[in-house]
Nucleic acid binder design. Structure first.
Lengths: 342, 342
DNA sequence: GGTTCTTAGTAAAACGTTTTAATGGCTTTT
DNA sequence: AAAAGCCATTAAAACGTTTTACTAAGAACC
């Protein structure tokens, strides 16, 4: 008789709590949110009722009323070919992991949105209060979709041309560090292997590289590969390049998937790393470290970057402010076997 | 004059669309969901109205009505000490990355819930339709919290003792593969370094190891370390063990964070890997690969596991069924320098 | 030609919160 | 002692959907 009903018992609502505590629904709401004072006596009755009934608020209902979803989303706009496979655990996920923790500390949860074919789908199907966009290209589809929908968005990317909310990465510094290091390691004729898209990383690395070349009196050798071609594309392109123009004594290859291809190409030509060729990449992730020898790379302090981005986003959601940007910590060189003593 | 208004223009609602299309709200709803037939002519008027107004449904409202949040959550219940640092990008994130894609394909989004201090907080603050729980220990707090709330939950873990919904991993096979391989690589006195918690991985590896010992006539040497002690704990413990009992010629150390500690201990004793000691770990992640030499490990097919788990969860949410389990693909050995030719 | 079926649509209820405006009781001020 | 303030509380409105019960108009049946 007093047994729990077998039917999937309906969850208690705020009304049930109110009734049991002998107050009105509004008071229960106030007791929960603390937005208005409630008498300490009734407060006690309410909390008693709450865990007597095992009440847990219906978030959808709350969200409808408050207009908040209680979540933020992190987007990867990277082409699938680059973000897939081993690299999937790279850049984006490292940021995501750290952002998830920060989000939690700010009482929101993190939605992980993978690169998908149809960006519009994601936005129509999923509700969130703000978005973090990681290294979008200049013409990123999400960027305008989010802007059109009025969703606060913080971009992790370059300082220039960027919308109001951003954590700016110093790409110029990244490229400089790596170029300088290659020179210091003894490379006198090193080349650049980079992606084709309008991503800041590609553009600025090319700029800095060509600047360095003229400073050093070195003839620029650049291979540009569509991101979609990925590892195999880089390997093929470099092999062709070496066959026609000879081997460089260093390669700067910012995209880690392509770095793997570069290493394969060097191996197939019998070129020893680091003895004959030095190799450096940008992101110090799984790929960089699982090469033999492991690749020199940069510590981008992504955990800190993620923390900053989350904080910025949450602040903006709460305050409505929409024009702040902070700069990420300076990248630091991580010297590994591919440019140093093995 | 034709500029966008400065005020944060209210989003169009289904009523606005209905009015513009000259129909009722209910019809618009049906047109969107396809749950009922609507005349192709009115259908056209409605879609026209929709993108004339830039209407996008309010997910919170829909969620309240349907009782669906449109999200599933993935939980890490691993102690922070183990899940932090380099390992954060490991096991859990690899599953999460793949689950995010699968989730998207099933029209739900994935919430990434990091290990936090107060599990109850997460459940009170975040709404989701189902949960994926990765390798919970037997007394995992989330397990009962989720069950109490009636949230469909699929566990990725061992076959025994597990609740209704599960993707079962074959721990016995994992342990066997690694033990056999160590023996084949020439190890005659290899030890086990493992964690203390009631996690299936710990328990079953210990079982299999001791079984193997008696089969082989090998005296078992086991070091058990609290997970919280992590890398440093493993290093200290192994150093002490070697000092008092001499060096083994092989180490099976399932938890990758501890494997790093083990390698450090071996180095500090001047023991060459793989010449004097073979080392194998379980999860083939960043840590295993960035050791020198890289560690032999297992391909656990985590992408496939994640896909299965997501599918299972979505099915259960939709059908209400709550008692299925599928088995993960068999693990496969990945031989690396730490047990083979360098 | 009356009855029953289908079809495409509508109006209104319901979902569970938060918020707004109103209320009654009590204390303080004049 | 009346007026004015404050306090804790309440009833009801509002949020934007989906769903339910109902209707009107033809089509089909006999």
């Amino acid at each position: 008789m007093t047994e729990a009903p077998v039917t999937p018992k309906k969850r208690a609502t705020v009304k049930d709590v109110a009734q049991l505590a002998g107050v009105s629904a509004g008071t229960v709401s106030n007791a929960l949110s603390g937005k208005r004072r409630v008498d300490s006596d009734t407060q006690a009755r309410i909390t008693a009722a709450i865990d007597a009934l095992g009440y847990v608020p219906n978030l959808a209902a709350r969200g409808m009323r408050t207009g908040r979803a209680g979540t933020i989303a992190i987007f990867s706009s990277m082409p699938v070919a680059v973000a897939a496979g081993q690299s999937r655990l790279g850049f984006l996920m490292e940021i995501a992991a750290s952002a998830a923790v920060s989000a939690m500390e700010n009482n929101v949860a993190l939605l992980l949105i993978p690169p998908i074919t149809e960006p519009a789908t994601a936005l129509g199907t999923i509700g969130f209060d703000g978005a973090i966009l990681v290294e979008p290209s200049a013409d990123d589809p999400y960027l305008e979709l989010l802007a059109a929908r009025g969703v606060p968005t913080v971009v992790i990317g370059p300082a220039e041309d960027m919308p109001s909310l951003a954590v700016t990465l110093n790409y110029r510094k990244m490229a400089s560090l790596l170029c300088d290091h290659l020179v210091e390691s003894g490379a006198r004729r090193f080349m650049l292997v980079t992606g084709q898209s309008a991503r800041a990383s590609n553009i600025i690395f090319r700029e800095v590289y060509t600047e360095r070349c003229s400073t050093l009196g070195m003839e620029p050798e650049v291979i540009v590969i569509p991101e979609a071609a990925g590892e195999a594309g880089a390997q093929a392109a470099l092999e062709a390049h070496i066959a026609s123009r000879g081997a460089p004594d260093g390669v700067l290859v910012p995209i880690d998937a392509m770095a793997t291809g570069v290493m394969a190409a060097l191996r197939s030509h019998g070129l020893a790393v680091p003895q004959s060729v030095k190799v450096a990449t940008r992101y110090d992730g799984l790929r960089a470290r699982s090469e033999t020898p492991p690749l020199t790379a940069l510590n981008l302090h992504l955990d800190e970057v993620a923390k900053l981005a989350t904080r910025l986003l949450v602040d903006s959601i709460e305050s409505g402010a929409s024009a702040t940007s902070v700069t990420a910590p300076e990248p630091a060189l991580v010297v590994r076997g591919a440019t140093g003593s093995p």
